[in-house]
Amino acid sequence: MMFRKLAVPILVLALVGGCSRRGELVTGGISAVRSACPSVAVAAQTGDITLFDPVTSRDASAIDVTATLTNVRSTCAEGPTEIVTTVTFDVLARRTRTDAARSVTLPYYVAVLRGGSQVTAKRVGNVAVQFAAGEGRAQTSGQVTSSVNTAAATLPEAVRERLTRRRRPGDEDAAVDPLADPEIRAQVLNSTFETIVGFQLTADQLKYNATR
């Protein structure tokens, strides 16, 4: 799969799949509201990036720039035909040499996962960090918007009924979790979506993050 690199820090993901509608799961008098909006997080091992000079070195003395992707936040607007999620994040950077002003461009990605593993959309963009002369720290931010087709993400009515039906003591299936049914569990998993962000790292950079 090929992904187009964008030159601006604002991306739009047009998805054919998405997250389920809001549903209330009631079991034994306890209800849990399942949001239609995807959860948002930084992917493991991709929240930090380290640039070296020279680039082939991995010595601490060769560290040029380090940056962290943090403060990930999201807002979600649910509509009758689509669910729109806007994700914002900050990039905090440090550099070793502080003599002159400098701009450093860092690549990042945004991906949507379905069922915890299936990538339904991914885009790569760039954020530019501006260091002032004499300053060793800099900060910038990025933003991404995803659009999800609501109808494509809705659970079948029969599955929704199984999940939301009130169970009373004495019922034959009162103590049976409907998610124990592999078919029901698969349907729910298939309608569960996550938005993940992180730096777009090379294989060497991923290895460095995993072993440092």
Rank of each mutant, 00 (worst) to 15 (best):
K122L: 09
S39W: 03
L69E: 04
A133P: 09
V188K: 04
G47Y: 05
T154A: 14
V188F: 07
G115Y: 03
E78L: 11
A100G: 07
R166S: 07
R166M: 01
A121V: 00
V42G: 06
A210L: 06
R165Y: 01
R73S: 13
F52I: 01
R168P: 00
A152Q: 03
A77N: 09
V127R: 01
D171A: 02
P80Y: 02
E157S: 15
R95S: 04
S35M: 07
L179C: 03
R168A: 07
N190Y: 09
L179P: 04
R102F: 05
R58G: 06
R102N: 07
V26Y: 09
L69W: 04
Q143R: 15
R34E: 11
V87Q: 05
T192E: 11
I30C: 11
R212W: 06
T140D: 07
V16K: 12
V112C: 09
R114S: 13
L11K: 12
D64F: 12
A100L: 10
R95Q: 01
R168E: 10
T202Q: 05
F199V: 01
G29F: 01
E24S: 12
A121D: 13
T164I: 05
L15N: 15
L11F: 11
A93E: 02
V148K: 11
T66Y: 03
R114V: 06
V33P: 04
A101V: 02
S141E: 10
R94D: 08
A151T: 10
T195K: 05
R137W: 11
R165M: 08
I30T: 14
A175L: 15
V197M: 09
T70L: 07
S57F: 04
G23N: 10
G142D: 00
N71C: 06
T192I: 02
A32Y: 11
M1A: 13
G125I: 01
T85V: 12
N190K: 11
G29R: 01
S31F: 02
K5P: 05
L206Q: 08
E78W: 04
V197I: 12
D59L: 13
L51A: 01
G170N: 00
A77L: 09
I83D: 06
R94A: 13
A77P: 04
P178G: 02
A32F: 12
V148G: 07
P169I: 00
E194L: 10
R58T: 12
V159R: 01
D173L: 08
R21H: 11
V33L: 10
P182G: 04
R123W: 00
R165P: 04
V144F: 09
T88N: 08
P182C: 02
F199G: 07
T68M: 06
G115L: 03
Q187F: 05
L69A: 07
A128N: 08
A174C: 05
A180S: 15
F199L: 03
L201M: 06
D90E: 08
A186W: 02
T46S: 14
V26A: 09
R58H: 10
P9H: 09
Y109F: 15
T50V: 13
T192K: 05
Y109D: 03
F52W: 06
G29P: 01
E82C: 08
A36V: 10
G47R: 09
R58V: 10
D90A: 11
A133M: 03
E161F: 12
R160I: 06
